[in-house]
Computed example of a mutant assay.
Amino acid sequence: MIKKIPLEHVLFLDIETVPQKPEFSDLDETSQALWEQKSAYQRKDEMTAAEFYDRAGIWAEFGKIVCISVGFFALKTSQRAFRVTSFYGDEVKILKQFKELLMNHFNQAKHLLCAHNGKEFDFPYIARRMIINGLELPYKLDLFGKKPWEVPHLDTMELWKFGDYKHYTSLKLLAHVLGIPSPKEDMDGSMVKDVFYGEHDLDRIVTYCELDVVTTAQVFLRLRNEDLLVDEEIKKV
């Protein structure tokens, strides 16, 4: 069934997020108390809310988006091409630019969004941050009233589960077992907060995010038993 989806109808994406403030102490008292409640069920008993704050970027209520990278196949010519671009910097600007892309180029019923673990993280995170920032949801993220088969979202992790709801596989592990060449990454997701607030190196985060988009597209190709992208086919736009 997956092979019946035209590649040019899929928008691959990945997001990078950080806590809303550099440190727990930068939050107001109400936010500190709410974070302590929110994080209580995940942090160990001996770990304080302040010590656990490095992970606040995982929750849309306490984090923000600093980069959305997208990729799509251009198959109008005889040569296959995968075009990658990114929106980064101010969160409201990022969200507006991403929404504009969806509205202008990926707003038809045939179009699908694809991310690794996107159904549990990327898609709801973007939607929640849009609502928090007072932006109306685009059709592709507004799931109210949609039946499961009407939701225009693909998730490479879900595709790999094959119905096993207990199974979690990281993008890095999945790429490894599928024989996808590992990109030369100099960071991982746990480092994004420090790179953003400590090193102020947003370009490094953007590069990391774009590599994950390419890897997600490569996984999708392998799940279709198709040839992987080569460097000459990947275009930064």
Score class of each variant (00 low, 15 high):
E8H: 14
F12M: 01
I15P: 01
I15N: 03
I15C: 05
Q20I: 11
L27K: 02
W35L: 14
K38L: 15
E46R: 06
Y53R: 03
Y53P: 03
A56I: 07
K64G: 07
F73M: 05
F73H: 07
S78D: 11
S78M: 07
A81P: 00
A81L: 05
V84F: 12
S86H: 07
Y88P: 03
V92K: 10
Q97A: 13
F98D: 02
K99Y: 06
K99D: 12
N104G: 06
F106P: 02
N107A: 12
N117W: 11
E120R: 11
D122T: 04
P124W: 05
I126G: 05
I132H: 09
G134I: 08
K140L: 10
F144S: 11
G145W: 09
K146A: 09
K147Q: 12
K147G: 10
P148T: 00
P152Q: 05
H153C: 08
F162R: 09
F162I: 11
K166N: 14
H167P: 00
S170N: 10
H176W: 10
V177P: 00
G179E: 14
P183A: 14
P183E: 14
E185G: 02
D186Q: 13
D188Q: 13
D188H: 15
G198H: 09
H200I: 09
R204S: 13
R204V: 11
T207P: 00
V214L: 12
Q218K: 07
R224K: 14
E226L: 13
D231T: 09
E233N: 08
